[in-house]
Design a binder for these strands. Structure first.
Lengths: 164, 164
DNA sequence: GTTATTGCAAATGATTTGCACAAGG
DNA sequence: CCTTGTGCAAATCATTTGCAATAAC
């Protein structure tokens, strides 16, 4: 975990007159140790391995805290559960493309998209706060070549492909 | 409900070797009788008034059917429950702006946004299927004039403003 | 010492499902 | 008839919450 994240979290905690605890530290560490998306439960598993006592309840509560602090973002990948994305600190305006063949999620930034959406928002009489764009697409490689390395990998790992 | 919707639903049902039932007709009618967004439960309430026997289970099952038939779309307004949008038939590529002051949802179409997203998707090596953009914003009127007619209306009607 | 935080287990709320009965084709 | 659809109530699943014990500051 990057030192500035730690600082920002500390500041937030102090500012809100909350307390720094071992659990919060451990969970924050688990959140920012990778750039992968995760669900609350996946994080609970991960945090459990490192820190001895961390309950699901505390994971949920701490996730809420991190979101409120602006360090973490909830995203919707269309699979009926909240996914958390720790990469908005490094890429503040990125979007997500979900391949419905293999379930792979591609993050991408595009200044034109961000700008255009902002313009449209203002034209409608609003002040833009945040935008979330999810593009669902199929893999062009699978269509033309008949195979997609990600799809094969996904099937091998027993990954759930789409919706429920 | 527009006749073409009826036809498309009939075709879908026939094609899938399903059966046309009074409940499905009643629910479809309730879905397409307005252009308002709704939740499963709101639809259940609405359908109950018209058709005598319609259970929640059947509402959920029929919603799935309509989505699968491409007549209805699930959207995410960020309030932790599935919202259904019956307006994609008339506006196939529209997006949603949610005012976080008053909870109002504004639908808007913008050909530039759609086109730009499609280009970006292709550049990434994918074939675009659908895109969902949600913009969260604050009401400019509220900020500058100190009041927003929608917010007042929302508060009066006891509308839940954002998240849970 | 206060007051916030935690873990547990129970509660919640939306959605799904098993099953016996009802009804389309 | 034969198979699909329905209502009901019970089951699921992610998430939240009440509460007594625990730990920050």
């Amino acid at each position: 975990m990057d030192a500035s994240v730690q600082t920002r979290l500390d500041d937030f905690i102090r500012h809100k007159k909350l307390r720094r605890t071992a659990q919060r530290d451990a969970i924050a560490k688990a959140v920012f140790s990778k750039d992968e998306h995760f669900t609350a439960d996946e994080l609970y598993e991960r945090a459990s391995k490192t820190a001895a006592n961390t309950s699901r309840a505390t994971v949920y509560r701490t996730l809420g805290l991190l979101v409120e602090a602006g360090l973490l973002r909830e995203i919707d990948l269309g699979d009926n559960q909240t996914t958390y994305d720790p990469n908005f600190l490094s890429k503040p305006a990125h979007n997500h493309l979900v391949c419905i063949d293999c379930g792979r999620v591609v993050e991408f930034e595009d200044a034109h998209i961000a700008l255009l959406n902002d313009c449209v928002t203002r034209r409608l009489g609003f002040r833009p706060l945040r935008q979330s764009l999810r593009i669902e697409a199929t893999c062009e490689q699978l269509r033309t070549k008949g195979r997609c390395p990600n799809l094969i990998a996904a099937r091998l790992s027993g990954k759930r492909l789409r919706k429920k």
